[in-house]
């Protein structure tokens, strides 16, 4: 991968707590939405935020590149997902409510209540983003109808025996990953749910573009690429320095599904070659630089966590969100 973006091109500052969620906006992918433990969601224009930008001293002042703040959450924000038309996004967090926002007015359009625990993930799904699928700590996956005004979920999948950490929607399938070490793929067409046992608590799911492979992060410091068709392991991505045993750390696929990217518990971001399984790059988020070699094992700070990574689907660019409240956007020099 000669052109893996390794240079920090932007730094999104302003959050006062660890950033839990990073999401690129839809089609032009020119904006970044971040959700953090400080209960705010922020919309940034990364092109206006140089890497040298520093957080403003007063919280009222807008950080460079910050467009809007979305305030409604009463607890930490754990996930953000933008719909295809770029006019709505869904955010979930510790307040057991799924928020549906209007981007322009910065107001919530709908609030779906019903989960009994914090909501780990909320994604759009269905045709024309007509539903929201949310995964919660209460062990359920609920499907909410955006189009009707019903306050009840369209459906509730309560098969998981533990907290459901991630969910994704692809075509006619809803895939959920749970702490009970299982990935459940509900196929709405056939009416069958395929359960793949990973063996370790699953923290993050990413689907390939074709939808036939799924990238699974689990708490055994391993990222696995599984074949959805028969449940076989295609590749396991590990590294000696890669630690992910305690925290929900996101992983993702990038560069047209050729690179596996994952955050870690100790502030590093790892990029693996999808085919070879070799670690291509390591980045230290707090220092905003790539790490070479394997020897240096820095003392892990309290805030040294890369909890979320997001790859820009159209450009050679990705973003890593850290426990220090900053989001670093990495790109190529040119």
């Amino acid at each position: 991968m000669p052109y893996f973006p390794t240079t920090p091109i932007a730094k999104l500052t302003g959050h006062t707590g660890p950033v839990h969620a990073v999401a690129y906006s839809s089609s032009p992918h020119s904006y970044i939405l971040t959700g953090a433990a400080d209960r705010t969601i922020r919309l940034y224009n990364p092109s206006k935020a140089p890497p040298s930008s520093v957080a403003p001293t007063s919280s009222a002042a807008y950080a460079p590149g910050l467009i809007t703040k979305y305030n409604a959450h009463g607890y930490e924000v754990l996930s953000i997902d933008v719909n295809g038309a770029n006019d709505r996004f869904v955010s979930t967090g510790g307040d057991k409510i799924v928020f549906l926002w209007d981007v322009q007015t910065a107001q919530t359009v709908r609030r779906f209540t019903g989960h009994a625990g914090r909501v780990n993930r909320g994604v759009f799904g269905g045709e024309g983003d007509s539903v929201i699928v949310s995964a919660s700590f209460d062990g359920t996956v609920r499907v909410w109808d955006v189009r009707s005004s019903s306050y009840k979920p369209l459906m509730t999948f309560s098969d998981a025996k533990d907290s459901v950490t991630d969910v994704l929607v692809f075509d006619g399938a809803i895939v959920s990953g749970s702490v009970d070490g299982r990935v459940r793929s509900y196929d709405l067409r056939t009416g069958y749910c395929e359960v793949d046992v990973i063996g370790y608590p699953v923290t993050s799911l990413t689907l390939s573009k074709k939808g036939t492979e799924i990238l699974v992060s689990s708490l055994d410091s391993t990222v696995r690429l599984m074949d959805r068709g028969n449940g076989q392991l295609l590749k396991a991505y590990r590294d000696q320095a890669f630690v992910n045993t305690d925290l929900r750390v996101r992983s993702t696929l990038g560069l047209n599904d050729s690179v596996v990217l994952s955050g870690s518990d100790d502030g590093m971001t790892f990029a693996w070659d999808l085919l070879g399984g070799t670690a291509l790059h390591k980045f230290r988020h707090s220092e905003m630089r790539e790490m070479r070699g394997t020897a240096e094992k820095k003392e892990k700070g309290k805030k040294d966590i890369v909890s979320a990574v997001a790859f820009c689907p159209s450009r050679r660019e990705w973003a890593s969100a850290g426990g220090d409240g900053n989001v670093v956007v990495w790109g190529t020099d040119s």
Binding site: Y186, L188, G191, Y192, C193, E194, V195, D196, M226, G231
Partner: peptide, 14 residues
């Protein structure tokens, strides 16, 4: 991973 770790159960979507 494979057939041993995979199981299937039916559900009925609304």
């Amino acid at each position: 991973y494979g057939p041993m770790t995979r199981s299937t159960f039916p559900f009925y979507p609304s």
